[in-house]
Structures are given as C-alpha cells and as structure tokens.
Design a protein around this nucleic acid. Structure first.
Lengths: 316, 316
DNA sequence: CTGTTAGCGCATTCAA
DNA sequence: TTGAATGCGCTAACAG
C-alpha cells in the first residue's frame, strides 16, 4: 500500500517541479539528462507509478482496449487472445474481454459499454450477422478478426487457401473422389467461402462434388458423414476439425479407411485419429497481427486501416 | 462521440447544482424526489455516463478487477470465467484477464501490475506451487478458485466427493475391480486429493487399488491405461476427463469393454465414448460464487473471507 | 531546460 | 434539501 506517492512527492523528493517529473514519466526529450537520471532514480527507489485515472482524466487516453470474443471456449479464439494479451500489457493497455456468443445484439451492447468507458480501441472477433453500421463509428480504432468489414481493419484467415491446400495434398496422394462436409452458407467464411473453394477445386480437378452442410459441431460431422460417402469415395474433407472429429468417429465405427481432412489443427483430432490431415490456420499469428495493427492505429500518428490475411499451412 | 457531457452540463440543463447531480448519480437519499426525477430525465435524455476516471481519481475506486486464469484454453476455467464476467459488468467492474500458464512467477508479475493499477480485487485460479506469502497482501480482496490458501476466500471443488461418487456409482453397477489413473501428487487437488479419495474408497470397499500416475493430458491416459488393466479389472476411473479420453481411446483400440469414469463432464468425451461416466464439478457455479464473494468483499461493508465448496454431481 | 498556473470531471466538505 | 467551494493526480500552457 506504499504506492500512495504522487508526482508531487517525487518532485519534492528529487528537488524539482511537478512538471519535470511529468516530463520524465512521459519520456519527453526536453529535459536535462542529469535531472532526468536523478528523477528516475527517485521513481525507481520508491516504486512510483503514475495514477492511470489521473492521466486518463487529463485527456490522454484510458489505455484500455476491449476484446469481444464470440466464445470464450473457442480454441481458435483462445489462441489468438493468448497471443495478443502480452502485447497489450506491454504497451500499457488494459484489455477487457467480453463474450458475444454470436449474438449481434450482445456485440452492440458491449460496444455501447465500451464507448461509455471511453476505451481506446476494440478487437472484435467477427461473425456473420453483425450489423456493419454498428461498427462504422469504430472505423479508426477497431480491428476485426476472421471477418472483414468495409473500411475497418481486419485480420482474416485464408479459407480458400486452406481448402485448396487440403485438396492438393489429397490429390498428390492419389485421391480422386473427395467429399465435403461443411456448414450452412449463412456463415460467410467457414460456411460459404470454404464450400465455394471446395467446389472450385473439384471443378478444376474434374471431380464430382459431393456435399453436405450442417452445423459447426462434431455431432453434425457424425450425422452427415454417411450422406457424403459413395462407394468410390476415398477422402472426405470437413470445414473444421470439430466436424472432422465427428466424421472420423463415424468412419472408424464403420471400419472405413476413407482419408479425413480438417481445418484447425485440433490436437485432440490428431491424437484420436493420427492419420487425419489438418490445416493450421495461424490463429496465434492472427491475434498478434490484430493487436499490432490496433496498437499502430492508436498511436499519435495513426496507421491506416488495413486488411491482413494470415497464410495457412499443413499441420505437422 | 456525444458522451462528452459532464455533470456540469447536466446540472445546467436541469437547472440544479453540480453536487445535486452527483448525488443523484450516486443514489444518495438526501435529494428531493422531484429534483431527482428531473435530473434523471435529463441524464437519460442525453445518455450521460459519469467519467470513470474522474470518480476513480476522486478516491472512490477504479472499479477494476483482475482475473488470473492459469490457461485461457482450460475448459473448466472457461466456464467459470464465462459465468463471472456478466456479474462484474453488471456491477460496473471492468474485468481484466491475465494468463499465468501455471507459472508462480507470472502470477506475481501480474499481481504486481494489478497492484499498480490499483485494482479493487482479484480472482485467482490457483495451482500448486504458488507462493502463499505473495497472496497474503490481497487477503481482503482476493478470491481463489480450485485451491484454498490460508486467510483467503476460496471456491473449491469437491475432489474427494467426485471420486467417491464415481466409485459408488460403479459399485452400484456391480463393479468390484476398479483401477485408477491420476496425476502426480505435486498437484495437490487433481493429483493428491483425488488419488487419496480413490485409495480411501478402495479401503472401505475392500478393493485392491491399482494405480498409475502421469500427466494431465490424453496422451498420459492412453499410455498408462495398459499399466492398470488386470485380467479382473472391470472399471477404470481417471482424475480428469482428458485422461479418460486417452484411456478410453486405448480401451477401444483393444476392444476392451472396461467401464471408464472421468471428471469434468467433457462433452467430447461423452460424444466419442457415450458409455463413459463423468462427474460434473460445477465450474460455472464456482465462477459465479467466486465473483459474488469478491463483490461482497468489495462492498462498503465488506464480507469476511469465506471458503466455499461446490457440490458435484453425476453428469447427465 | 524548468517551475508556475490552471484546469480535466467528479465527490465532498461547508454553509445556507 | 441544496449550491458553492475545494482538491484528487496529472498534463499542458505559459512564463522564466
């Protein structure tokens, strides 16, 4: 409880004026090196930390960012968040995390709260159904992940690339009949984009597409697997590892040797079904990039919004 | 960007003094109902929100709590955090989450930062190896989860009860030879406590204990399963569902019909191996209780530290 | 380069 | 019950 010191105390203790202390704290160059050193010594000696609230009030900025995840227990979002947290701390930002559970209303509520809290910026894990208009006001200080919105910075995954990678790998291994289990096109990326990419690959390779669309859960993979299995099917790719898990489970029960491929590099999937193929989407990298981008937009001379795509690669 | 209003503006707009507005905001009773209503109307009309930093500076409190999880991707901690977040928002607290990754040093670093940020309270997901002395200073405003520390509030799980529940259920189903896969006793709860409970149950039931201890991961369960299988073994319980997952996988590969029991109510485990038994530890409830306890200790008339144990129950 | 002065938005005396 | 005055810790203008 010793941290009750104020710059006034530091000023007195080091025999200078308050403003000089303030200058030292803020790393302003216009201060005599000797004086600076002396003040810094006192600051260190007493473990002084400037009051965040006071500087915030003085108009600076609260140094707070909001992180709105869709689901706290999403493996991909976890990795991204885990990567960005240290960066924010390091730059003196308090990250406050909120959960949207894929509800556009909840996102708007959270944004409202964040607005009132006067946060400096927001990281938003996007999903289909969000009202773009609600995001517009944040144009300058928001970075979305997984989804892009007009005028906003975004860090996206290479959905099409992932599918393509899977298809090419399978082709190289001699597979000519590859089915697909995805999710409804109401989901623009995991649903729409990956499905389209699959169809495009089939077209190019002269494969007859066999598709089933469901939900983003293993139950769905399990349920839909039989629907996409033809006698000639040798491989099956899924829009996500979660789905792949369900499908692999079904195949195992059937004693089938159909090769499964998924997206997400889920460690459990690879443990249970080692022969499964999976694409690593770069969630950690995405989180890092998103945080970096937000930080650079928050600086005195803000960077422009930017769309970033994270490259994917075959797991292992 | 309209929220630039201050109590001064509200005061002018509603024809009263600044202090009256302040009183209305803080729900003080000494204010004429009529005046109050008028002021509140103006406040609502303009969507005014008092500056958090300003009130913080005025000595109130920052209304910030730190949440130190051990791993962002822990299913149990996720559920707990998910349950507590809304409660904190609701009470006007900004929760800022940090990750310790089971490193005592990291916990101390985070606590140091939180201390400097002058946070009001801390929720700490405990683990074995933490230095109790480092927590002592937080006695009045910290609640730990999963582990208890002298003098601190804690919300714990019923480790022994969970094992006992599993053992009793198995006994009721006629199992007389139940093996156990756990983790090293360096982990006081998941390791030590559950193991002890297993031994105690065996003693009571006249069962010869068969034990193997490893890590908290499915690989470990897979690897240790063969070590605890005797010809007469009919059931196998694991210190966690993660381990159970690995063990069940091994058993399935062996075509074994040994009944598996785990702890954690992992949905994937139940999906892949439906016949498996699992105990629900009440993670969500724990998070809720922890948040409630912390909030009650943060109030003007603080509640005393308290040790809470969450009851467990059979999943399904 | 440095000290002095003046508020930021609010809660809290103290009078009225 | 209310308003005016004071200062929280800090930064920014303005002198020196």
């Amino acid at each position: 409880m010793t941290s009750r010191l104020t710059i006034k105390d530091i000023a007195r203790l080091s025999g200078v004026g308050k403003s000089t202390v303030s200058r030292v704290i803020n790393h302003e160059k216009s201060v005599n090196p000797q004086t600076r050193e002396r003040v810094e010594a006192v600051i260190r000696a007493h473990g002084f930390t400037p009051s965040k609230s006071a500087r915030a009030m003085r108009g600076q900025s609260d140094k707070v960012v909001g992180i709105i995840v869709s689901r706290l227990d999403s493996a991909s979002e976890n990795q991204a968040v885990r990567a960005m947290l240290p960066l924010f701390y390091q730059h003196g930002y308090d990250p406050i995390v909120m959960e949207s559970r894929f509800s556009p209303e909840r996102v708007e509520e959270h944004l409202h709260v964040l607005r009132q809290r006067r946060v400096d910026g927001v990281i938003l894990f996007g999903f289909t159904g969000l009202d773009e208009a609600a995001l517009r006001p944040w144009q300058a200080n928001m970075v979305t992940l997984a989804r892009g919105y007009a005028g906003l910075s975004a860090v996206c995954y290479d959905d099409a690339g992932a599918i393509r990678l899977l298809m090419e790998t399978l082709a190289a291994r001699g597979h000519r009949q590859v089915s697909y289990i995805g999710v409804q096109p109401t989901d623009a990326t995991t649903g729409q984009r990956r499905h389209q990419a699959y169809l495009a690959c089939c077209e190019e390779a002269g494969i007859t597409p066999v598709v089933a669309l469901g939900e983003l859960c293993y139950q769905s993979g399990f349920r839909l697997a039989p629907e996409v299995l033809r006698p000639e099917t040798t491989a099956l790719i899924c829009a996500s590892d979660t789905i792949a898990l369900g499908a692999a489970q079904y195949l195992q029960q059937q004693g089938s040797a159909v090769q499964v491929g998924g997206i997400g590099n889920n460690s459990l999937l690879r443990f249970l079904f080692p022969q499964t193929l999976s694409v690593e989407m770069g969630y950690g990298t995405a989180g890092l990039r998103a945080a970096e981008q937000l930080l650079s937009q928050l600086q005195p001379s803000p960077a422009d919004p930017q769309q970033i795509t994270i490259p994917c690669r075959l797991a292992e």
